[in-house]
Design a protein around this nucleic acid. Structure first.
Length: 416
RNA sequence: GUGGGUGUAGCUCAACUUGGUUAGAGCACUUGACUGUGGCUCAAGUGGCUGCGGGUUCAAAUCCCGUCACCCACCCCA
């Protein structure tokens, strides 16, 4: 236990962090292109925030929260970020003076689920929230942004799945229609679905049981529950996606699990992910601010699971970036070498020194393993001559260079 | 929370079905062939409380029970 990470958590090791950094820096660049600014909220919040935002009956709230107590206060490690950001938006009055706040976030989330492929107890989200307007063009931008990110990451084979739950009234109507329609088939449904009818009807729609699927696909509810405004909002979004050339599939069975969703909702699915096939998901949550602060504020956003992105990312060799590996033989040479190392670094050349007592052979071997472009060798011979040896690792050749010219020599070659 | 599978060297795995001397291989690592020159080749060497705890047995990596973790799926969700 002492030497074991907690279940469902992972060390992200030095070999892997470059990929993470690349994904995150690409995301940051794109976000700034679209005028989204980063927000960092605490990783823990008051329990009540998520109960109110996500819905009391959701599994996340009922059994997946890491809760802890400090004095009389009950906290929870955030299971997702949207609620926190809505809280921060309201608390800091981020809507003041601007019509629209465009925010992005990158960070860890926590859910006490049983781990499996694409599902961890500590995982990372990259997401955006655009808060302040209900305009359908904003939905389009958000989806187009998600698409842009995926293409930038080099991910292919993904697919957008989209639906509209309608406004709060529509959503309630949808639930009623569903309940009525399902009641006729109750006996054929799986046990879970029988419970879901009363507990959370929408969940029946994405049940994986074949019989349940048959029934849900045979229901002819369509989008009859949508009011005129919501219908035309949805149509505008679809048209916009067509215009941008973003492929999607309208799926009437797509509903999101969290209470705060309403209106347009979408998922990005990918075949490499196994059972958890969503790379990311999002939608409108105009209702959330009503729930939290009785305010009418339109908002739309999405989140990608960073670990899931990793699963879908094309594999590629990591490129090692060490420019110079310096090695010395003898104490005098070591002094000289360390001086050189310092000068190289000051000149912006990445470099390291072999601190071991090993043979020259072992040191060159190390340089090879580190992927160094140059090895610099300094021993008594070199000190006497006033010249050090620069070895070109890949080419196998080597050159003698005056000590005073060494930094310039290396910089010159790196420039090419 | 439920079900199935898997835990053996740093890594990937064998031996488990049918218990039997010192638990093997490949890769990696160290050293040498090659006195101050890496990658290729060859040779030698280092490395294991067989996840942990208990039980059965003359004898357990192997059979049984428990436990922990990982993987996959259900549930749920990014």
């Amino acid at each position: 236990m002492l030497l074991q990470v907690p279940r469902g958590t992972k060390d992200i090791l030095p070999e892997e962090t470059p990929v993470w950094q690349e994904v995150e820096s690409k995301a940051r660049r794109i976000f700034s292109l679209y005028n989204y600014a980063e927000i960092r909220t605490p990783v823990f919040e008051n329990v009540t925030l998520f109960k109110r935002a996500l819905g009391d009956v959701t599994d996340i709230v009922q059994k997946q929260m890491f809760v802890f107590k400090q004095g009389d206060d009950h906290f929870v490690l955030r299971p997702e970020a949207t609620a926190s950001i809505a809280r921060a938006y309201l608390e800091n009055n981020l809507g003041f003076g601007v019509k629209l706040r465009k925010l992005f976030y990158i960070g860890p989330m926590f859910r006490a689920e049983r781990p499996q492929k694409g599902r961890l107890r500590q995982f990372h989200h990259i997401g955006v929230e655009a808060i302040g307007l209900t305009n359908p063009n904003l939905d389009i931008e958000v989806i187009e942004l998600a698409d842009k990110l995926l293409r930038e990451f080099g991910i292919s084979n993904y697919k957008f799945v989209i639906n509209s739950l309608g406004c709060v009234k529509d959503k309630a109507k949808f639930a009623d229609l569903l309940k009525q329609a399902l009641a006729k088939h109750k006996k054929v449904l799986c046990k879970d679905c029988q419970k879901r009818i009363t507990k959370n009807v929408f969940r029946v729609l994405d049940c994986k049981n074949e019989k349940c699927k048959e029934i849900t696909h045979s229901l002819k509810i369509g989008q009859s529950y949508l009011c005129g405004d919501c219908k035309s909002h949805f149509d505008k979004v679809l048209k916009g996606l067509d215009k941008f050339g973003i492929k999607y599939e309208v799926k009437e069975q797509l509903v999101r699990g969290l209470d705060y969703y309403s209106g347009v909702v979408f998922e990005v699915v990918h075949p490499d992910l196994g059972a958890q096939d969503a790379l990311g998901a999002g939608g409108r949550y105009d209702y959330l601010f009503k729930e939290l602060a009785n305010k009418e504020i339109g908002a739309v956003g999405f989140a990608f699971g960073e670990e899931r992105l990793m699963l879908a990312l094309p594999k590629k060799e990591s490129s090692k970036k060490l420019n110079v590996y310096v090695m010395s033989l003898g104490d005098k040479a070591a002094d000289k070498s360390l001086e050189l190392v310092k000068n190289l670094r000051s000149a912006g050349v990445s470099c390291d020194f072999d601190y071991s007592d090993g043979s020259l052979k072992s040191k060159l071997n190390e340089a090879n393993k580190l992927g160094a472009r140059f090895a610099i060798i300094i021993g008594d011979d070199e000190i006497n001559k006033g010249k050090l040896v620069v070895k070109f690792m890949q080419e196998g050749k080597q050159e003698e260079v005056e000590f005073v010219n060494a930094v310039g020599f290396i910089k010159n070659i790196l420039k090419e």
